[in-house]
Design a binder for these strands. Structure first.
Lengths: 192, 192
DNA sequence: TATTGTTATACTCTATAACTATA
DNA sequence: TATAGTTATAGAGTATAACAATA
């Protein structure tokens, strides 16, 4: 046993901290003056950050069932904050993107939380914040990679729903971070 | 503007990662073979780690309303995993602690997630895991401190419910980590 | 009068299953 | 036959408010 690998002790401590993290997220949500479903705000934020996405990919990104994302999208559409555009390459799927109204709402709400966070982290350096962001990002990558591994090897073949959505989620994040989003033109409709 | 303080850019990035963290937590919960309410497992874990606690303190620790914690405690009590003991110093409040059955359930479930985490973090060093744990813990401390600041200064006095619960939460965690938990003897009952 | 905890009620988020439409 | 998405339904989890008991 070398001392380098992640130990059960270390992971036990991390587990306890994940509970803290859940509490922090809850507290931030509560402090947020946002007139709408809070789950929807996270969706707006992602669309604002990463550009238009397919509903299934968004479901994978947020680790929720496709039906849940479908409902959230419908809700935000009713509020006029997002719109669906047909996928020219596949008549079954849709791309979802912010409307101008949705962009405004997203920017206002995000600005508000961001300022709250800046105030909260008054004694943090930007490097420390970036370090935390980086480690969380890596945690998610590790999780996705682990599930990809588990999906390749194990007990006979699976349908692949979960893994596909999840692995794609990581991809979406990465491309979005490097600015590749907002590709794919709109129309060429078909049915819908 | 020095370059050290936490910037809006850095906090915006962290915000996006918090969403990732929410997804990770959801995924871990789902992967968990636990026959019971998942919110309850977090509660068992805390009692196992920190020893007996008052219901109100647990509510603050998890950032939920007292009524929510009361219901969760009742549920776990119905399952025989926790029990309440009267607080000899205050007839209104109760301490909650694991039963032997609850201890077993908690250890089994926690061991399972811990092993999953060890597998997932196969390319992390123990130091990196500790670094992430530390930063998350500090994030929570900063949030609590910020709310304590906000509660001291602002718009007239408040009742203090939120702050009290929250600040105490931090205290509970710290003492527990240094092994001070499991203090306070049981009985001397009164009414109940 | 304030605080600890419980209970009733309602609302949000979520998953499962059955369905439609397209590939 | 498989996949993308929708809808119906049910189950967690949560907050608000009204309540009881103790400080």
């Amino acid at each position: 046993m070398e001392a380098v690998m992640a130990s059960e002790e270390g992971c036990g401590e991390l587990l306890a901290r994940l509970s803290d993290m859940g509490a922090v997220i809850k507290a931030l949500k509560r402090a947020l003056p946002f007139t709408g479903p809070h789950a929807g705000l996270a969706l707006l934020a992602t669309l604002h950050r990463c550009g238009e996405q397919r509903i299934g990919d968004l479901a994978g990104l947020f680790e929720v069932d496709l039906s849940v994302m479908s409902r959230q999208v419908a809700d935000l559409r009713d509020r006029g904050w997002i719109e669906r555009v047909p996928n020219p390459n596949d008549g079954r799927s849709w791309y979802v993107r912010l409307t101008p109204d949705g962009t405004r709402v997203a920017e206002e709400a995000l600005g508000s939380v961001r300022r709250l966070l800046v105030d909260t982290l008054e004694d943090w350096t930007d490097d420390e914040v970036a370090e935390l962001s980086g480690l969380i990002g890596r945690l998610r990558s590790s999780l996705d990679a682990h599930r990809a591994r588990a999906a390749r090897l194990p007990r006979t073949a699976r349908t692949g729903t979960v893994q596909a959505g999840t692995v794609q989620a990581g991809t979406v994040q990465s491309t979005a971070q490097t600015g590749t989003a907002q590709t794919r033109a709109a129309q060429t409709v078909k049915g819908h």
